[in-house]
Design a protein around this nucleic acid. Structure first.
Length: 262
DNA sequence: AGTACCACCTGACGGC
DNA sequence: TGCCGTCAGGTGGTAC
């Protein structure tokens, strides 16, 4: 779930549910999601305040409080948010619970505990600290060309490297490369200027389209490969067999027919 | 600089 | 039924 489009959808979800409610209480069910953050400080700075506004950079969601403090959510591979009425059934794997004065709760959910919740001083400082590249949805073609210039290695690894470009993960990288008809192992140095432009454009349209679809694969266009990323998957374009390989230790699904040789 | 491998975690699934 | 290996949409550290 938690790549750029998913996080953007979670941002909208927070915006429409969790802003401007007095936070009565916070329960940290599993302190491991706070990593190096002080649990006490996190709670002290947040309880009694309200979530005011959200922003996103790559796969990080930032929430500004009405006391100038900021917190962040990162969702790892299995993170999610759930806003629900107190008396409703508590979601599974909830790790941090924000109890609002309207008797609703926002739960930060993380099955595998690979995500992270914490506080920060400033968003630009945080981005700098973590050495995050420009957000994939914001970046211009010019900057995209700059970031790719002088690099080498598999294009898929490049797309997924958060230091170069923030927001794209394993699933959407496969989709972008499929739409751009580029083999995932293609060395970025071998991409013509036209191919780079195409890659850039497909990156934008895939991200925008999947956000519009609520990051729900069932609502993605019929031409998308994501729902076919399975054993025995068929290419939605040529009906050929989808191939699975490893790129940088992660499984890459692609169509050997449509995504020509490296 | 890029890649390979390990670690952090837990759960789902297929094979025996 | 139960155990085991493998895999899963992420990231950080290390070694080469």
């Amino acid at each position: 779930m938690p790549e750029l489009p998913d996080v953007e959808v979670l941002k909208k979800y927070m915006d429409s549910t969790s802003l401007h409610h007095h936070i009565k209480n916070i329960e940290v069910e599993d302190e491991r999601v706070l990593h190096d953050n002080s649990v006490r400080r996190f709670i002290n700075e947040t309880v009694g305040r309200m979530f005011e506004k959200t922003s996103r950079h790559g796969k990080y969601l930032f929430i500004g409080l009405n006391n100038e403090h900021l917190i962040y959510f990162h969702f790892g591979m299995t993170g999610d948010l759930k806003y629900y009425k107190q008396e409703d059934k508590q979601p599974e794997y909830g790790r941090v619970f924000f109890r609002f004065s309207n008797d609703y709760t926002l739960a930060y959910i993380s099955k595998r505990l690979l995500g992270e919740v914490g506080r920060l001083e400033s968003v630009p400082g945080f981005i700098e600290e973590r050495d995050l590249g420009m957000d994939a949805l914001d970046i211009s073609l010019e900057d995209f060309r700059d970031v790719i210039r002088g690099r080498r290695g598999a294009v898929k690894s490049f797309l997924m490297n958060q230091k170069r470009l923030a927001g794209i993960g394993n699933i959407y990288a496969d989709e972008i490369l499929f739409q751009a008809h580029i083999h995932p192992e293609t060395d970025v140095r071998r991409l013509s200027p036209e191919k780079v432009k195409k890659l850039f454009q497909k990156m934008k349209t895939v991200l925008k389209k999947t956000i519009e679809s609520g990051a729900d694969p069932e609502r993605f266009p019929k031409s998308y490969i994501i729902p076919h990323r399975t054993k025995d998957g068929k290419c939605p374009r040529c009906r050929g067999k989808i191939k699975k390989i490893k790129v940088n230790g992660r499984s890459a699904y692609y169509c050997p027919e449509c995504q020509s040789k490296k």
